[in-house]
Simulated assay, not measured.
Amino acid sequence: MRNALKLALMSLSLLGAAAVQAQIPALANCTRSANLLACVDGEGNAYSVNTVGSTIYLRGFEAAGKRYWAQTNSRYGQLTFFTGIASDGEAWVGYNRRVGWTTINRFSSSGGSSAKFTCSRITGC
C-alpha cells in the first residue's frame, strides 16, 4: 500500500478520535476550524480534511513520493465509500463499515495493492 493511501486512511480514522494531538504530539501539527482540519507532520507530509454534510474531502502531499493526492469519502449511515487519485495516476477505491466498536475496511488500487482488515477501538488494527 502506498504512503498516500495509508495517510488518507489514517487521517480518516483520526477524525473520530478525541484529543489526538494531546495523546500523540509527534504525529502531526494541525490547525482546525469548524469544518476544516489541516496538518503537517515531521516528514513534510501535508493533508487537509474538509467536511461538507456527510461528505469528507481529503487533499494532501506525500513528501517521500513527491506527489499530490485527493480522496472523497461519502457516508451512508454506518457505511463509508471512498475514491482517490494521486498526481502520478494511481487511483483507489474502497469502503469502511462500522459494526459496533469494530470497523471493517477494504480497498484496492490501480497500483496493485488491495487489502481487507478489521480495526477495533479496544484491540486496534
Rank of each mutant, 00 (worst) to 15 (best):
residue 15 L to R: 10
residue 101 W to F: 14
residue 103 T to K: 01
residue 67 R to Q: 12
residue 70 A to V: 10
residue 112 G to Q: 04
residue 17 A to L: 15
residue 22 A to H: 03
residue 38 A to S: 10
residue 36 L to T: 05
residue 89 G to S: 11
residue 22 A to L: 06
residue 32 R to F: 08
residue 61 F to T: 00
residue 40 V to S: 11
residue 123 T to C: 12
residue 9 L to S: 04
residue 27 L to T: 00
residue 85 I to M: 05
residue 82 F to K: 01
residue 29 N to T: 11
residue 97 R to M: 14
residue 119 C to Y: 07
residue 120 S to E: 08
residue 5 L to P: 05
residue 8 A to E: 08
residue 55 T to K: 06
residue 12 L to N: 15
residue 104 I to D: 03
residue 17 A to M: 14
residue 114 S to Y: 05
residue 114 S to K: 11
residue 114 S to C: 02
residue 27 L to W: 04
residue 18 A to K: 08
residue 124 G to I: 03
residue 25 P to Y: 10
residue 31 T to I: 11
residue 39 C to F: 01
residue 66 K to Q: 15
residue 75 R to Y: 08
residue 62 E to C: 08
residue 81 F to S: 12
residue 110 S to H: 04
residue 2 R to W: 13
residue 99 V to E: 12
residue 120 S to T: 06
residue 95 Y to T: 02
residue 68 Y to L: 14
residue 40 V to T: 13
residue 38 A to K: 05
residue 109 S to A: 08
residue 28 A to S: 03
residue 10 M to W: 15
residue 12 L to M: 15
residue 39 C to L: 09
residue 96 N to V: 05
residue 70 A to Q: 12
residue 53 G to R: 10
residue 120 S to L: 07
residue 125 C to W: 06
residue 49 V to H: 06
residue 102 T to N: 07
residue 110 S to A: 07
residue 20 V to T: 03
residue 76 Y to T: 13
residue 100 G to T: 05
residue 98 R to G: 06
residue 48 S to F: 06
residue 50 N to T: 12
residue 69 W to N: 06
residue 123 T to K: 12
residue 118 T to A: 02
residue 57 Y to W: 09
residue 79 L to D: 11
residue 117 F to L: 06
residue 42 G to R: 11
residue 68 Y to R: 14
residue 11 S to T: 09
residue 26 A to E: 12
residue 69 W to Y: 11
residue 66 K to W: 02
residue 96 N to F: 14
